[in-house]
Every structure is written in structure tokens, then in C-alpha cells.
Amino acid sequence: HSLRVHINGKDFEVHNADEHVIRALEELIRRGADADELKEFLERWKG
């Protein structure tokens, strides 16, 4: 899957995101994670 996440006016393109990554991202958003947390998660995932 390809996923586009809009954080703090920046678009993050997440390519080849598997279900696990997408679910983790949705969980963060549901918990009310702020932009920094989401960005950190995506950067860690992209490795």
C-alpha cells in the first residue's frame, strides 16, 4: 500500500506500508499522538 500522511503542513509518503505499519499509525492517531510523534514513527519505520 501507499499511504500519504499530512503532518504539520508536510506530506509524508509511506510506500509499501504493510498492514502492521498502517494499524500502528492509526493507533497513534487514535491515541491523539502529536505531529512530532507521528513523524518520529514514520522516520523510524523508513529506517
Rank of each mutant, 00 (worst) to 15 (best):
H1N: 12
H1W: 02
H1K: 06
H1G: 13
H1F: 03
H1V: 12
H1I: 11
H1P: 09
H1R: 03
S2L: 05
S2Q: 07
S2M: 08
S2D: 07
S2V: 14
S2P: 14
S2T: 14
S2Y: 12
S2I: 14
S2A: 03
S2H: 09
S2R: 04
L3E: 04
L3H: 11
L3A: 02
L3V: 14
L3R: 00
L3N: 07
L3F: 14
L3S: 02
R4K: 15
R4M: 14
R4G: 10
R4Q: 15
R4W: 11
R4C: 09
R4N: 15
R4P: 05
V5K: 00
V5W: 04
V5A: 03
V5D: 02
V5H: 02
V5F: 11
V5Q: 01
V5N: 00
V5I: 13
V5G: 01
V5M: 02
V5P: 01
V5E: 01
V5T: 02
V5R: 00
H6V: 13
H6C: 04
H6P: 03
H6Y: 05
H6E: 12
H6T: 14
H6N: 14
H6R: 06
I7Q: 01
I7C: 01
I7T: 02
I7S: 01
I7F: 05
I7E: 00
I7K: 00
I7D: 00
I7W: 03
N8P: 01
N8Q: 06
N8G: 10
N8I: 02
N8S: 06
G9P: 00
G9L: 01
G9N: 02
G9H: 01
G9K: 01
G9F: 01
G9R: 00
G9M: 01
G9Y: 01
G9V: 01
G9Q: 01
G9E: 02
G9A: 01
K10H: 09
K10Q: 14
K10E: 14
K10N: 07
K10F: 06
K10I: 13
K10G: 02
K10A: 06
K10D: 05
D11W: 14
D11G: 04
D11E: 14
D11Q: 09
D11L: 15
D11T: 15
D11I: 15
D11C: 04
D11A: 11
D11R: 07
F12Q: 01
F12A: 01
F12R: 00
F12D: 00
E13D: 06
E13T: 10
E13S: 06
E13G: 02
E13H: 09
E13N: 04
E13M: 11
E13F: 12
E13A: 05
V14G: 01
V14A: 03
V14W: 04
V14C: 02
V14E: 01
V14F: 12
V14I: 14
V14T: 02
V14K: 00
H15I: 12
H15E: 11
H15Y: 11
H15S: 10
H15T: 11
H15C: 04
H15F: 10
H15V: 11
H15N: 12
H15R: 09
N16A: 08
N16R: 05
N16M: 06
N16D: 12
N16S: 09
N16F: 11
N16G: 08
N16Y: 08
N16H: 11
A17P: 08
A17K: 05
A17T: 09
A17Q: 07
A17Y: 04
A17L: 09
A17H: 04
A17C: 02
A17I: 10
D18A: 10
D18L: 04
D18R: 04
D18T: 10
D18M: 05
D18N: 10
D18V: 04
E19H: 10
E19P: 08
E19T: 09
E19V: 12
E19D: 09
E19G: 07
E19W: 12
E19M: 11
H20W: 09
H20P: 08
H20Y: 12
H20F: 13
H20E: 08
H20N: 13
H20Q: 12
H20C: 04
V21P: 01
V21C: 03
V21K: 04
V21T: 12
V21I: 13
V21H: 04
V21Y: 03
V21A: 10
V21F: 12
V21D: 05
I22G: 02
I22S: 02
I22E: 04
I22W: 05
I22A: 04
I22L: 09
I22Q: 03
R23T: 09
R23I: 10
R23Y: 08
R23E: 09
R23M: 11
R23F: 10
R23N: 11
R23W: 10
R23C: 04
R23H: 13
R23L: 12
R23D: 06
R23G: 07
A24R: 12
A24C: 05
A24F: 07
A24V: 10
A24E: 14
A24P: 00
A24I: 09
L25E: 00
L25Q: 00
L25V: 07
L25P: 00
L25W: 08
L25D: 00
L25A: 02
L25T: 01
L25S: 00
L25K: 00
L25R: 00
L25G: 00
L25Y: 05
L25I: 11
L25N: 00
E26N: 09
E26K: 14
E26A: 09
E26Q: 12
E26T: 13
E26V: 12
E26R: 10
E26W: 13
E27M: 08
E27D: 13
E27I: 07
E27A: 09
E27S: 08
E27V: 08
E27Y: 07
E27Q: 10
E27W: 06
E27L: 08
L28W: 06
L28P: 00
L28Q: 05
L28I: 10
L28V: 03
L28D: 00
L28F: 06
L28R: 02
I29T: 03
I29N: 02
I29S: 03
I29W: 06
I29P: 00
I29H: 04
I29Y: 06
I29L: 13
I29G: 02
I29A: 04
I29R: 02
R30G: 10
R30Y: 10
R30V: 12
R30I: 10
R30A: 14
R30W: 10
R31N: 13
R31L: 14
R31V: 11
R31Q: 14
R31T: 12
R31H: 13
R31C: 02
R31S: 12
G32E: 05
G32C: 05
G32F: 03
G32Q: 07
G32N: 09
G32S: 03
G32R: 03
G32Y: 04
A33M: 06
A33C: 04
A33K: 06
A33R: 03
A33P: 04
A33F: 08
A33N: 03
A33H: 05
A33G: 07
D34F: 05
D34P: 07
D34L: 08
D34S: 13
D34R: 05
D34Y: 05
D34N: 12
D34A: 10
D34H: 10
D34G: 12
D34K: 07
D34C: 04
D34E: 13
D34W: 04
A35N: 09
A35E: 13
A35R: 05
A35L: 14
A35M: 13
A35D: 09
A35S: 12
A35Q: 09
D36G: 08
D36A: 11
D36K: 08
D36L: 11
D36H: 10
D36M: 09
D36T: 10
E37M: 09
E37T: 08
E37A: 13
E37C: 04
E37S: 08
E37Y: 11
E37I: 08
E37D: 13
E37P: 01
L38C: 03
L38N: 00
L38M: 09
L38R: 00
L38A: 02
L38I: 13
L38Y: 04
L38D: 00
L38S: 00
L38F: 11
L38K: 00
L38G: 00
L38V: 14
K39Q: 10
K39A: 15
K39S: 14
K39R: 12
K39D: 11
K39E: 15
K39V: 15
K39Y: 15
K39G: 11
K39T: 14
K39F: 15
K39C: 07
E40T: 12
E40M: 07
E40W: 05
E40F: 06
E40P: 01
E40Q: 08
E40G: 10
E40A: 06
E40K: 13
F41N: 03
F41A: 12
F41K: 02
F41G: 01
F41L: 07
F41Q: 04
F41I: 07
F41H: 05
F41S: 04
F41E: 09
F41P: 00
F41M: 09
L42W: 11
L42S: 02
L42M: 11
L42R: 01
L42F: 12
L42G: 01
L42E: 02
L42A: 04
L42Y: 14
L42I: 14
L42V: 14
L42T: 04
L42N: 01
L42H: 03
E43D: 14
E43G: 04
E43A: 10
E43Q: 08
E43V: 12
E43W: 04
E43P: 00
E43I: 12
E43S: 07
E43M: 08
R44C: 11
R44V: 14
R44Y: 12
R44Q: 15
R44L: 14
R44K: 15
R44P: 04
R44W: 13
W45L: 09
W45A: 02
W45C: 03
W45S: 03
W45N: 05
W45F: 11
W45V: 07
W45P: 02
W45D: 06
W45Q: 03
W45I: 09
K46D: 14
K46Q: 15
K46L: 15
K46T: 15
K46G: 15
K46M: 15
K46I: 15
K46W: 15
G47K: 03
G47E: 15
G47T: 07
G47L: 11
G47W: 07
G47D: 14
G47R: 02
G47P: 14
G47I: 11
G47N: 13
